[in-house]
Structures are given as structure tokens and as C-alpha cells.
Amino acid sequence: MVNSLEVRQLAYAYPDGTQALFGVDLSIARGERVALLGPNGAGKTTLVMHLNGILTPGHGTVAVAGTPVRKDTLKEVRQRVGLVFQDPDDQLFMPTVRDDVAFGPANAGVRGEDLDRVVKNALDRVGMLEAIDRPPHHLSFGQRRRVAVATVLAMEPEILVLDEPSSNLDPAARRELAEILRSLDVTVLMVTHDLPYALELCERSLILSDGVIAADGPTRELLADAELLARHRLELPYGFAIPAV
């Protein structure tokens, strides 16, 4: 079976010369939920921007479900990679929740009743169907994040990429989002430095540090290795401990 995501020797330097990625290798199989861990400045966001072709690799390749990310495949790739941004106000730019969720599929040419069905289905999957006609800025932060997830679910992506999904959520909203993510039947790449959240949702984790993948393994094992975490400026919150396996 083709992997949902295949990144080979990806290197990237920003136009000002700052090298952010130094040869990243990773592959994610279909149906996996993987956490990408790393401190601030490790290159997580830069890597994410490559996954749907917003940035073009300086070296190396990215392939989504076997399709290489290139200029001529951008349209297809962007439909397959569902990027959920950190600030839902950046993601929800249309006047109503309905219009926002419809934006992606409508760009792909879905119209009329089909569009309506796709929108309702996506909102139902995140439990936000009753908010369909409300303007996004009248929703709570947690609700906005769920709608943001719906906007990309509506495009039926091959892989869902979430940038810091738990940031700014209160404990209940955090749990609700976790339940929703667990109920979805899609491949997930979750970029975060919220280690307990990664443990809760993802079997497998990658540590991105200084522009390379520094570790790749079962989340529980990585998080139990305090020395490994410390080397990459990661640590469990106060009071947490994961027994070594």
C-alpha cells in the first residue's frame, strides 16, 4: 500500500539564508496517527508548509499518497493534505460557518445539493452542525477550532495535518477535540509540543530537532526517555511521569 506521506531528504533554507531543515526523512502509513514533536524553532512549521506545497523544497522530495508535490500537482496535493492552522481566525475567513466549510469543496467544483451534503457531513463529524449559519467570530475558541477541522475534512483529505491542535483550549475543549480526532477515520499528523496530548492520541511520534528527525518510535517509549527529551528541549509537564517500558 502507498504511504499517505513520504518525505525524502527534505532540506530548506529561507530566502534570507537561514537553514531550517537539513534533510528530513519520514513516512506515514495510511490510517496512522503520528505526532511530530519538537521545541519552538525546530522547523516544525517549515516542514508543515512543505506538505502542501506552500514552500518549495530546496532539496529532496515530498509525496502525498504517491503523488509528488510539484507545481503541476499542487491543486491535487492541496486537496489531499488538510492543513489545520494554529489560529482558527486565520482558517475561518468566510462570513458564515457554512460558507467556510464549503470553500474548499466549492473550489474543487462541488456545487448545489452535493455541496450542501458535504458541508453538513463535515460539520456533523466535529459536532458543530447546529452552528452552520453562524458567523465564525461568534463561536467560542474551542468551537472555532472544531469548525477549522471541519473545513479541511470537507475536502476528504488523505492526511490531516494539525498545527498545535491543543493550544489555547480549556481542558474540556481539549478533551472534546481529542474525542473527535480519535473518531475520525483519516491519517493524522499532529504537530505539537504538548507531550501528554501526543501520548493520548498518537501511537507513534517523531522528534524534529535542529532541522532533522532526531527520533522516531512509539510515543510511550520516546516520552519515557527523559534524557532523549532533555536533549531536544522537550519535557513532560510538572507531575507527569511515564514508566519505562
Binding site: 492552522f85 481566525d89 486565520d90 475567513f93 457554512r98 470553500f103 466549492a106 474543487a108
Partner: peptide, 22 residues
């Protein structure tokens, strides 16, 4: 913010025209 919104739009297949939703 405008730049980030633009990225979000590109990520969902925006190509210069607003799609007709309603």
C-alpha cells in the same frame, strides 16, 4: 494575519476567484 489567511486559502484550493457557494 493577511498572509496567514492567504496561506489558509491556498491550502483549500483558492485560485484567485471566490467560489460560488450560494
Amino acid at each position: 494575519r493577511g498572509e496567514r489567511v492567504h496561506l489558509a486559502m491556498l491550502s483549500r484550493g483558492y485560485s484567485g476567484r471566490m467560489p460560488i457557494i450560494q
